[in-house]
Design a protein around this nucleic acid. Sequence first.
DNA 1: CACACTTGCTCAATCGATTGACTGCTCAAT
DNA 2: ATTGAGCAGTCAATCGATTGAGCAAGTGTG
Lengths: 354, 354
Amino acid sequence: MARARISDVAQVAGVSTSTVSLVLNGRTQRISPATQDRVREAATTVGYTPNSVARGLRTQRTRTLGLVSDQIATTPFAGRMLAGAQEVAHEHGHLLFLVNTDGDAAVEAEAVQALTGHQVDGLVYAAMWHRVVDAPAGLPAGTVFLDCRPATGGYPAVVPDDRAGGRDATRLLVEAGHRRIAYVDVDEDSPPIASALRHEGYLEVLAEAGIRPDPALHVRYESSAAGGRAAMVELLDLPAERRPTAIFCFNDRMAAGVYVAAHRRGLDIPGDLSVVGYDDQQLVAGELDPPLTTIALPHAQMGRWATEVALGVRKPPEDDQPHLMPCPVVHRDSVGPPPAAAPTPAGDGPGTTP
Amino acid sequence: MARARISDVAQVAGVSTSTVSLVLNGRTQRISPATQDRVREAATTVGYTPNSVARGLRTQRTRTLGLVSDQIATTPFAGRMLAGAQEVAHEHGHLLFLVNTDGDAAVEAEAVQALTGHQVDGLVYAAMWHRVVDAPAGLPAGTVFLDCRPATGGYPAVVPDDRAGGRDATRLLVEAGHRRIAYVDVDEDSPPIASALRHEGYLEVLAEAGIRPDPALHVRYESSAAGGRAAMVELLDLPAERRPTAIFCFNDRMAAGVYVAAHRRGLDIPGDLSVVGYDDQQLVAGELDPPLTTIALPHAQMGRWATEVALGVRKPPEDDQPHLMPCPVVHRDSVGPPPAAAPTPAGDGPGTTP
DNA sequence: CACACTTGCTCAATCGATTGACTGCTCAAT
DNA sequence: ATTGAGCAGTCAATCGATTGAGCAAGTGTG
């Protein structure tokens, strides 16, 4: 059977379609309660569901939202961002269009066209890792950038506060008593937004703590467990007095590699070595042994923020700067005090270069 | 400036809106080439983009698709299914609505209503792990079930061929020469579709190979690295002659735990122990040392299949049985021949119960 | 030359809901 | 008796595109 239209309801209730529309939309000031009841009853008996397409055409508001992203699938983070976005859309009675462009600019432009053609009420442009992007052509004003910054500015944007995350991670280790803290960095991040910001945070906290940074403790490898392992091997080959007692890793996967290398050398975590990761990738950080203390990327929060701004229920900052979303510290079991035998009794062990 | 409408194009080109519509939709049999050119030119000069809402109202085809799923975010598989679905939608010029219901039946029903209200041309109902689900109320005929089977039947569905996967995994080990093969199963999967099917496949291959299954080699623990570790400990505590030389794990996370327990006992993989996982979770299987041989869940393929059926470009099977999607074997480095000292020289070592 | 046919395009109805303007009616006040 | 106000709804235009029917001019045919 064909879907019931408003005119079917009107007929059953013995009123005009106008009346049905008014009642069903709550504009009941001038409709008698008796009529309202008849209309509502008629609506349920015929099983009426409003046709959003017709409504959208008339009202010019479709209650839909578009989210275009470069890769929805490849990264496990994607989900949390998406979930946050979807949640907000749902909370406000909107439906979410999802488009995956694989970073192809042509597909991107096409997607934006298709979405505006479908009269979306808002648009979110998402990246799967924090970086600078070029806004695709034809992007409507008010599009919100999620986990990326438009090269040109002019749009609201939200990104993780990587610098603060780097600070928090490092502070965690400093407060546990460590003085020789390595940063296991990634070598491929260009432009290196996330990695550079985390490094800055690392350096800031070292400075605050009066620790002179040792360049040998900043190593760069590919972003994988293998890279982390190689990095750790390099650090462990340092002379004993320059060897780190704590490692801050660019991400959890590299931390997993650090674990492997440390365990191979018979080091206990956190007894002999403390490790902090970044990203809070469930399958990595939570499953390591011991579970990894890490800094979580606030994907769900960012997804929510972006969608709220896109829907107009939250005002973006006026200064055209990306909103910095804090990265929460996730305390697990990979951080402890430095080993008693550590070469840092009390006096400053400055990291002199050879 | 307001969006250009078809009437704007008509005015600029000096023709009627009908003509514009005909030209732009390729129904050009009765339109002179000259007029066509004028129309197209006019369209680009005014920057015309068709209003899909209006078109959808008129044609009753919106070129949109709905995908409702219980959890889009929580599992890293989700993405591949979604990506497959999105890809197909895009290939056929459709836009994909994504709704995440968190398994809440009320939200589900609401979502289905909202989607049919938006006149989607097709609907996919997805689960994030293979199981039997109750079709939500009001589900349109022709809805496709993805990675789940409707309890009642009556809808096209696609699920992984877990039985064949179990067979392949076990055959891999049998062909490497193993006779004592354990199945590290999950204990919580109820109804245990995936686990039961994989177990059946396992038993089938054992039977074909003339290996009597040893109940002590079928252990059940929680689905996590910790569970896998516990399982492996139990297996390693078996008397030497009953101890397995190969392990088939319900999933990669459990396999990761098996690795840990094996390494703790000083066992080399695959020298002393061969391991096969399931799922091909990138972050787990690929990052383990050695990389894990596993059976991949064909999420992208299933997502594609479901979407193609939903769009009507692929015919579902007529027998109302779920389509079984093969699970490819992913060869990595965790399978080898049994150790030379293994208790299986040539004669059948039947697993006699004590 | 009359007729049918083709070509090239336009008319106007239509999809289903929303909404500002308007109508009939009753009752009260002037 | 006329005017005005308030109530309870209805009318009809509208959103922007699609499409079957229709029409004027040109072409071909007997």
